[in-house]
Each structure stands twice: as structure tokens, then as C-alpha cells.
Amino acid sequence: MTKPVRTEAELIAMARLELKAHLDCPDGIAISVLRDGASWEFRATAGDATVASPGYPECVAMLVQIGDHLSKQYDVS
């Protein structure tokens, strides 16, 4: 059985919604989709000021969990 396919933009939007529902993340976090063969994961990048902001590590950790969950449900186009 194949998984439904979503675009990178759709997956990133889904991740941002879930992050917003669970945590108060600092502004300035860029999320990208990193592909590795048939699998994929989210990658977070940010400037030094954002990285130093309270809550940044928790947001990145939550993003990893969200990516793990979504990658089991969706393929990326």
C-alpha cells in the first residue's frame, strides 16, 4: 500500500501548524525537507540570535518528532 504524496511546501505547512499547536517557537526558524532515497526528514536552520532564543532546542526536537510521524504517513513529491 502506498502512502499519499504531499509537496515539500504542504509538509512544511503541516509541521508549522503542529509546532504552533504545541510550542511557542521563536521567529526565524526555516524548515526544509531533506530527502534520502525513499525517506525524508525535516531540517531546521536559523540565525545565531534565533538559535540562542529560549525554546529553540525544544522546537527543533519537536520538529524531529513531527517529521518522524509525518514521514510514516506521507511520501514527498
Rank of each mutant, 00 (worst) to 15 (best):
A38W: 02
Y56H: 09
S77L: 09
F42T: 00
Q65A: 14
R16D: 03
V33I: 15
K20P: 01
F42H: 08
D48M: 06
D27S: 14
Q65P: 00
S32T: 15
A21D: 13
L70D: 04
T45F: 00
V33G: 08
L11V: 08
C25D: 07
R35C: 04
A44H: 01
C25K: 13
F42Y: 13
P26K: 09
E58L: 12
A15M: 08
M14A: 11
G55V: 13
A13L: 08
L34I: 10
P4M: 05
G37Y: 08
F42E: 03
K3Y: 06
D68E: 08
L19C: 13
D75F: 05
V64T: 13
S32Y: 02
I12G: 03
A49W: 06
A21K: 12
S53L: 06
T2S: 05
G47L: 12
Q73L: 14
Y56A: 05
I31C: 00
G55P: 00
M1C: 12
E41Y: 06
A21L: 09
E18P: 02
T45C: 01
C59K: 12
P4H: 07
Q65I: 06
G67D: 09
D68T: 12
K72N: 13
L19R: 12
M62G: 01
P26Q: 04
I29R: 11
H69E: 08
L19W: 06
A49Q: 11
Q65G: 04
L23G: 07
T2E: 08
G37F: 00
A38N: 07
V76K: 09
P26C: 02
C25T: 06
L70N: 07
G55W: 09
E41G: 12
R35L: 04
L70Y: 11
T50Y: 04
G67H: 05
Y74F: 15
D27N: 12
A46V: 00
S71P: 02
H69R: 14
P26A: 06
